[in-house]
Simulated scan of single mutants.
Amino acid sequence: MRSHVLRPLFVAIGLVIVILAVRAFVVPADFGIGERGYMYGWHRQSNEEEWRQIAVKYRTNAYCKECHAGKVESIGRSPHGIIPCEECHGPAFNHPKDPPTLTIDRSRRLCIRCHAKLSTPSSARAEIRGIDPEKHNSGAECSLCHDPHHPNLEELKRHE
Rank of each mutant, 00 (worst) to 15 (best):
L6G: 03
L6N: 08
L6D: 10
F10P: 06
V16T: 15
V16E: 12
V18G: 11
L20D: 12
V22C: 11
R23W: 12
F25S: 06
V27Q: 07
A29F: 05
G32P: 05
G32T: 01
I33H: 11
E35N: 07
Y40P: 04
R44I: 14
R44Q: 10
Q45A: 08
E48A: 03
E49G: 06
E50D: 12
R52C: 04
A55C: 08
K57H: 13
Y58C: 07
N61S: 02
A62C: 08
A62S: 07
Y63R: 01
Y63E: 03
E66L: 02
A69D: 00
G70T: 02
K71V: 01
V72G: 03
E73Y: 01
S74A: 06
S74C: 02
S78H: 03
I82M: 01
I83Q: 00
P84Y: 03
E86S: 02
C88H: 01
P91E: 03
P91T: 05
F93H: 14
F93K: 15
P99Q: 02
P99K: 01
P100D: 07
L102P: 15
T103G: 10
D105Q: 08
R106Q: 11
R106N: 08
S107Y: 08
R109F: 10
R109S: 12
I112G: 10
C114Q: 01
K117V: 07
S123R: 13
R125W: 04
E127R: 15
E127G: 12
I128Q: 04
R129E: 05
G130L: 06
I131K: 10
D132A: 06
D132I: 13
N137S: 13
G139K: 12
G139C: 10
S143D: 11
H146L: 00
H149E: 01
P151L: 00
L153R: 10
L153H: 04
E154K: 09
E155T: 14
E160G: 13
